[in-house]
Design a protein around this nucleic acid. Structure first.
Lengths: 116, 116
DNA sequence: ACCACCTGCTAACTTTCCTTTGCATGTGGA
DNA sequence: TCCACATGCAAAGGAAAGTTAGCAGGTGGT
């Protein structure tokens, strides 16, 4: 946790870099809830909320689980994964070497600019 | 700095949520340099680097300044702004109320609500 | 003058993200 | 059975981000 891999850090940053998702995190800190209720609270559509929740889940910031409500209905509950990411130049520099970004497809190994 | 506004936090997260920009930060931590040199080091085009640098600059993570090199040429140097952002659910929840996102301006305090 | 650097900008394209709309399904209660 | 509420998913359109290619101008050294 203290030393996330570059890709993981990137996923977390990508997941948090959105106003909706920041609100979702804030809402889940207050209380764990199920999707439909959360959508009402945040005043966004369920479909949209689902997409955002998945992104947060993919980044490991929230977890999902099915639960049976008092009325016997199946609800999908989401809750926060306690996290603490320290963002400093040093921490970033430490994570960068472990980045496996697929965009390093560039040649140009000699360092000279030039164009074809 | 210790308590960034929601929008500021969002800008910082948005700025760091990209592999190129993470590498830029790491490179600038090692040494401050000018654009063309940095582009060669990172093996990306100058035009692309410029876009990314601007985003980092807009988020207040780096600063730019003109300088005269030893050979008398004008160079644009970039250097890191020391930053330390702690990313926790609590910190996010504290920043969320100050978000001024143009998507949904709401003020539902009690969280109970039906649908439109 | 020419070359080797540096800077900046825009137009156009590709890719990714965001969002809505709509449909299909399952369950308990009146 | 019908209603209310829960879940899931896919298609489709629009907005934003990422990227390339190309042009234009500046300075110093040979």
């Amino acid at each position: 946790m203290t030393e996330p891999t570059g890709d993981q850090l990137l996923r977390q940053l990508g997941a948090l870099g959105n106003p909706h998702r920041l609100r979702i995190v804030a809402a889940l800190l207050a209380e764990r809830t199920y999707v439909s209720k959360l959508a009402r609270e945040l005043r966004i559509s369920r479909a949209l909320l689902q997409v955002h929740l998945r992104k947060l889940e993919a980044a490991g910031l929230v977890t999902a689980s099915f639960e049976i409500g008092e009325d016997g209905k199946t609800l999908r509950f989401y809750e926060l994964t306690p996290f603490s990411v320290v963002l400093t130049p040093q921490a970033i520099a430490a994570a960068v070497p472990t980045l496996t970004t697929p965009d390093s497809v560039q040649g140009n190994a000699d360092g000279k600019e030039g164009r074809p």
